[in-house]
Design a protein around this nucleic acid. Sequence first.
RNA 1: GGCGCUAUCGUCUAGGGGACUAGGACGGGGCCCUCUCAAGGCCCAAACACGGGUUCGAAUCCCGUUAGCGCUACCA
Length: 481
Amino acid sequence: MTAPRVRFAPSPTGYLHVGGARTALFNWLYARHTGGTMVLRVEDTDRERSTESHTEVILDGLRWLGIAWDEGPLFQGEYGDRHRADAERLVAEGKAYRCFCTREELDAQRAAAGASGSAFRYDRRCLRLPAEEVARRLEAGDPFAVRFLLQDEEIAWDDAVHGRISFQGRDLDDFVILRSDGSAIYNMAVVSDDIAMSITHVIRGDDHISNTPKQIALYRALGHAPPVFAHVPMILGPDGKKLSKRHGATAVGDYQDQGIMPAAMRNFLALLGWSPGGDREIIPEDEMIGLFTLEGIQKKAAVFDTTKLEWMNGQYLSALPAEELLEPVQRQLAIMGIHTGGADLRPAVDSVKARSRTVLHVAQQVAVRLDPSRAKLDAKGDALMKKMGAAFAANLNLAADVLDAIGPDEWTAETILAVLKAVAEEHFLKLGDALQPIRVALTGSTVSEPVNELLAIVGRERSISHLRAVGSRGMPGESPA
RNA sequence: GGCGCUAUCGUCUAGGGGACUAGGACGGGGCCCUCUCAAGGCCCAAACACGGGUUCGAAUCCCGUUAGCGCUACCA
């Protein structure tokens, strides 16, 4: 058997949504796993809704996720001639026919069918038109669409994720394959393209299951064996409904902006609807490729859980070297209007990343390490200050004095901790009472890396002057006493 | 309405006739560690939709019911 050829075929009518991203990911994983080829085909035949900027956003999203296709992007709109030729061949062979019914006539037929309680199926009135009348209307230049002549037979396939799925031809109707302007309808264009591009495996959303029998019928009529179909389940919002704008962030770009790392997004998306079996959660890319099979894909739709995504992102954040976080962190800082020049952010990033779930969160903390006056007092910090009262400033000033005695060359986390411990002991302070005010003064929060480490990162001069400033004037965001 | 798909903790899932007093992860609760938090470690609560079969034995196989979702365009 030759190597598989798969395709991801987005239509550029919107951004790259997480559902599409996951479909692309599954195609990519399958291609990599099997040594096959992934084709990217942009289905831009809907002129009304397709835009070039959407195409760019989708391509950027795929690149960001690290999904590298092998061929394309190909644009479906460029193959209109082939689509039409295929459809006309079907007409010539009597497998499709011209339909002169107008939109209005069709609407009327549909309305009549609806009233009788049954599903609408085209009644083939144009198939029964005498040849001379067809010739006459063609001569007169009457507009016509082309309909596929559907046989009443079973159409079934072994879906790679669902198993056998079967439809009866009588439940389908003679669907249109060519519009009256000569352009192909989706099902025609897709089949024509998939044949021309030698696609062997069609991995796409569940919502295409009902298109599949029509497409198989087209394959048969065109004289080609259908590919393997794998219909992956949909992604739902927390309320169990199809994921949409009203659920908040659904575009992969939104997650990039929120500080999700591509590797985390990939890992999370892969596990949404696919499982290698067993208890694996964090799976490196190369292992994922090795483990991926179509059989491991779930049949059931999955709810998109951002909390778990953030947890997973936190896992990647703490595992990734600061080096790899630098660029996304800088990007976030730039969005916040902070330009760091040549400053080495690595120590601060390293110190802060283990406590963060998003790059945005990392960047916020790095910004404060760079300049403690950016710290905003949070509720717990405020509560601590109130609780300690005068002792807060007193302990801060005490700390500033002993820290000032440390020379610039000895300003390390180890020395700082030793000095602070000694002064706490000397003044009968609990270590926490000595350290927490420093933490709050420097970060505005009761949560951070160990205080000695924090001081080392912020730096001697900045720490001491800020501690003294807060000791005498209080926190910038402090609520009035 | 018709056709189709689906059904294990709140969520993501393991499970493919006995290994199931149903395992893991997120989230929730508790404890430990500890200058705080996170991480980490330990523990707790939490599910096989329902009803029939098949079988010595069903979460696992079959049928039905119910529920949810998808499609039902000269959109993709």
